[in-house]
Design a protein around this nucleic acid. Structure first.
Length: 572
RNA sequence: GGGCUUGUGGCGCAGUCAGGUAGCGCAACGGGCUUUUAACCCGCAGGUCGGGGGUUCAACUCCCCUCAAGCCCGCCA
């Protein structure tokens, strides 16, 4: 019996929001973080968009919200992506990203971290994300962080114990010994060498030797260290700001400083024995703060591959924006439960736009969802997908399919013609507003970029069956510059006559409507040529786009440049 | 060696937390719209819910085992 049904939240976000509200805080802090080790791929947007949505929801509840993005600019470079000049590797490996120069010849960037961090941040406005950025290298100059370093050093033994408790059970025999061994002389902080600027040494085999703190003198407020890279050794005061906490301690220190209420974490962090768990315990025991609510999420994959900054499998938010609307990505992240991985496939953009259209229609009560649950769900996420103010009426939007079709015909169409057609489509769909030409052009350009991208993918894909799969999902074609000889030679006299009659009709009549042209073609075929209309349609398609079928001819011919069309129809 | 997550028609997903023998959208197919649409409308088909076992009157749903994919588990992030 279902009489005593429990109320289940309409959306998974509500679960996390309820947990936050249960804490009854006057001020709520959301946090996300990313190391700027190269182009930051769009996977990071999953946590940013989730947090941003939580932010919006809580603001509806009139809560005071902070939302931070930590750019971990003080992290040391463990390796560089392929696209970074090889000379960088020798020179800067082991240095913090904030102390490595901008890798490209562009002015206005202070560092490697600045360059890649800014690339990400600059897309926030378009994605509708409102987050404050905190650069870790700056944070480490702050007295409050230095204090956390002191606390950590003072509690080294307790920290070690927490690690032992959490990590040891997950290790096998061999690693267990290794772990116990490294713990013997271990402090939870590293030093940036004043001489060579490095914080760690990375061996050929990838293993890392950090400039670990060797001893801590509480009274003098100094630590001693020995640089694994240049051999320099000595003492340094904590006040100098050249120390960095170990990741597993650094994270909870930030939580404690900013009183983080909730922070999402990629699945790599949120596994048992991982840094989130040990972080929570350190946060509580060492820093005396309860720590954030954990929200783990799966990764965004590019096709069937994980996006790896280091392997060059990247798709940046910036690149995404050139191809598709930001609302679509927000939707993708918001509709998918966080524990499911998402395979982002460009060739499936049609489907995403379809879903969006449906969601939008449901939101504006133009159509209904299949169930009440779905209706509520869609109405819940729609506002969260928006990147600017939500309009009271359904916004102007050209069908994605129309855009991608028309853009492939752009070479033979007059832009004004397409524009008029676009406006007509919008009127037909019930909009009475005007479509600004600039908006139209932007959308057209996006579609063009998408087509180019798909073509690139097809070009690089060797596997025929995968190729076919992609082609199954998209409609890619090309308009030939000229009518091929093959097509010309195969035209019968009747077909040629039909073309000629159409041409004459177009020349001698002005201001034709699509309806009239459509009917005229039919008329020519049926009454003048005495052939099946299909045959004439086929002929016209062949001549214009080199294929046997195409868009409804009346409106299509109207969109073409008239002189071009008449010239094209001049088949001898 | 240990652990976590995911696996539902060709594709993308819902349904799993409250057990009652599967839904949706694309694609495909057929038809209509005096074309054969990359507009639209109507219709049809397609799944032993990764596999095996158990609990139950009843399992996609709970339990156990197993396979596949991905991730984490010294340092580092």
């Amino acid at each position: 019996m279902r009489t005593l049904q429990k109320e289940y939240p309409i959306h998974w976000l509500e679960e996390i929001i309820n947990k936050i509200l249960d804490k009854n805080l006057s001020e709520i802090t959301l946090a996300t973080g990313k190391t700027p080790s190269g182009h930051i791929h769009m996977g990071i947007l999953r946590e940013l968009i989730i947090c941003d949505s939580i932010r919006r929801k809580l603001e509806e509840n009139r809560k005071k919200i902070n939302f931070f993005l930590f750019i971990d600019s003080l992290d040391a470079a463990k390796r560089f992506p392929e696209y970074i000049d090889k000379t960088f590797t020798k020179k800067y490996l082991g240095k913090p990203f904030s102390k490595i120069p901008c890798p490209v010849d562009e002015t206005g960037y202070n560092s490697y971290a600045d360059y890649f961090g800014t690339e990400l941040i600059s897309t926030f406005k378009q994605f509708g994300i409102k987050a404050d950025v905190i650069w870790t290298h700056e944070l480490y100059q702050d007295i409050i962080m230095k204090d956390k370093i002191r606390i950590s050093l003072n509690n080294t033994d307790k920290i070690k114990e927490i690690f032992r408790k959490n990590i040891l059970p997950t290790l096998d025999e061999k690693n267990r010994k290794l772990f116990i061994d490294t713990q013997k002389n271990w402090f939870p902080a590293m030093v940036i060498c004043e001489k060579c600027g490095k914080m760690q040494k990375i061996d050929e085999n990838g293993s890392i030797k950090p400039n670990r703190v060797l001893s801590y003198d509480k009274n003098k407020d100094t630590v001693s260290f020995s640089c694994t890279s240049c051999g320099n050794s000595g003492e340094i005061t904590i006040n100098k700001g050249e120390l960095k906490l170990n990741w597993r301690v650094d994270w909870p220190a930030k939580w404690a400083i900013f009183k983080t209420t909730c922070e999402p974490a990629g699945k790599d962090h949120s596994v048992k024995g991982g840094s989130y768990d040990t972080g929570l315990e350190i946060c509580k025991i060492i820093f005396n703060y309860d720590g954030p609510i954990k929200l783990s999420y799966e990764w965004l994959r590019l096709g069937d591959q994980d996006m790896k900054t280091s392997k060059g499998i990247i798709f940046t938010p910036k690149k995404y924006l050139k191809i598709a609307d930001p609302e679509i990505l927000r939707m993708l992240f918001l509709r998918t439960p966080p524990n499911k991985h998402i395979s982002f496939r460009l060739e499936e953009l049609y489907q995403l736009y379809d879903y969006y259209e449906k969601m939008e229609n449901v939101y504006y009560d133009i159509e209904h969802a299949n169930s009440e649950t779905e209706e509520k769900f869609l109405k819940y996420i729609y506002p969260l997908c928006q990147t600017s103010r939500i309009s009271t009426k359904k916004p102007l939007r050209l069908p994605f399919k129309y855009l991608t079709t028309i853009v492939q015909l752009k070479t033979i169409l007059k832009i004004e013609g397409i524009y008029e057609k676009a406006k007509k489509i919008l009127r037909y769909k019930g909009f009475d507003e005007n479509l600004p030409f600039n908006d139209f052009e932007t959308q057209l350009n996006r579609a063009q970029k998408w087509i180019n991208e798909i073509k690139d993918i097809l070009k690089n894909e060797k596997n025929e069956s995968i190729k076919r799969k992609i082609l199954n999902k998209v409609t890619i074609f090309e308009v030939p510059d000229n009518v091929s000889e093959n097509i010309k030679n195969n035209l019968s006299l009747t077909q040629k006559l039909g073309i000629k009659l159409l041409k004459m009709f177009l020349i001698s009549n002005k201001d034709l409507s699509d309806e009239v042209i459509q009917n005229k073609i039919f008329d020519i075929a049926k009454n003048e040529l005495k052939i099946k209309p299909q045959k004439l349609f086929k002929t016209i398609y062949l001549i214009i786009i080199g294929k046997e079928f195409g868009p409804r001819l009346g409106p299509f011919l109207l969109m073409l440049d008239k002189d071009w069309l008449i010239n094209r129809l001049s088949i001898e």
